[in-house]
Amino acid sequence: MGNLLGSFNARNVNLNMDDKPTFDPQEGFSYERKPREMIAKEEDLISARIPPKYRDYCAHHLLEYQVCRYKNVPLMYKCAHEKHAYLNCEHQDYVMRMKEFERERRLRVRENRLIGVA
């Protein structure tokens, strides 16, 4: 229901959870926005056999977590710090994506208002 209620109003402007951003990323900002940078290297991810769907912007934390797990077998609870760092990063990433979603929704509403769709 987190997603259901969060995206409820977006249906009015035909915006769904999987849609990509359609507006200029710079629109409405006074300063220049930088694209996010990927910290983990591709070859590290490949050598650590991280599946493609986990190769996101928090993958460097994930690598650290995997290293810690490898060192602390089988007492993996010792990696609680690394796991928390990874999940925290994922949380920040989620918040950022939700903000982008909301920006997209508001920009669409604004566009509709300017055109006069009601």
């Binding site: 995997q66 089988p74 609870y77 949380h91």
Partner: peptide, 20 residues
């Protein structure tokens, strides 16, 4: 607890409001 540490190499991120 043991399994949740053991088998989730890639942990799930859960983020929702308090009441949920």
């Amino acid at each position: 607890s043991m399994l949740s540490w053991m088998i989730f190499c890639y942990p799930y991120m859960i983020f929702m409001s308090l009441n949920m």
